[in-house]
């Protein structure tokens, strides 16, 4: 390309121009500038080394220390929490076992109590029934006794009227035994007892 090809010639012509426009100053070190640079650099290094770097380093180290600490703390906390959790778990297990034990014991005692009270109730009921039976039997017997004496006196009276004679004690007894033997009082007594 012609444009590109002409660049070197232009630069060359620029170089060969007046003495002022030469390019050699580009690579010529200047003592003054070097001294200025050294001065500025030395001051910059002094100031940075005194006021900037230590503070930054301190802040970074401080942060690093804090991070390490907080990681350690977190680790510790985690361990503690784990231990605590394990402890709790153990306690919970123990409590659960205990509660199961209590429940089963209660159940057992309840069962026992139930059967006991059932037995007692049964016994009591039976006693009451027995008592009632006994009472009613005694009552029946009493009634039968009364009936018997009533019937006896009636029979004696009736016989005396029929025979127009007063019966002796022996005759009365024989008569009563015969008459009453024919009446089945046991039937009465059993019906009355029920």
């Amino acid at each position: 390309m012609s444009v590109i090809a002409t660049i070197p010639t232009i630069l060359a012509s620029a170089d060969s121009g007046s003495e002022d426009s030469g390019g050699s100053f580009l690579v010529q070190p200047g003592i003054g500038l070097m001294v200025w640079t050294l001065l500025v650099f030395a001051i910059a290094m002094f100031l940075l080394g005194k006021f900037a770097f230590p503070k930054i380093a301190e802040a970074l180290d401080e942060r690093q220390r804090k991070i390490t600490e907080s990681i350690d703390a977190a680790e510790r906390g985690r361990k503690e929490a784990e231990e605590l959790a394990a402890e709790y778990r153990e306690q919970l297990q123990k409590a659960r076992a205990e509660s199961e034990e209590i429940i089963s014991r209660a159940r057992r005692s309840a069962d026992l109590h139930e059967s006991e009270s059932k037995d007692a109730a049964k016994k009591q009921r039976e006693e009451i029934l027995d008592q009632a039976k006994r009472d009613s039997e005694a009552e029946a017997r009493r009634v039968v006794g009364e009936l018997r004496s009533d019937v006896a006196s009636l029979i004696v009276d009736a016989t005396a009227k029929v025979t127009r004679k007063t019966l002796t004690a022996d005759e009365q007894n024989r008569l009563l035994d015969d008459a009453l033997g024919e009446i089945d009082f046991s039937k009465l007594s059993t019906e009355g007892g029920r």
Binding site: L33, W36, V40, I43, A44, L48, F51, F53, I56, E62
Partner: peptide, 28 residues
């Protein structure tokens, strides 16, 4: 004093100024 000296001084001042400024407001 020429252009290059000025640039050197600016660079030095900026280096020190920026770093000291930041160093003094380092935060956690």
């Amino acid at each position: 004093i020429n252009k290059a000296v000025m640039y050197v001084v600016i660079a030095g001042a900026l280096t020190v100024g920026t770093m000291v400024w930041i160093a003094n407001r380092m935060q956690a």
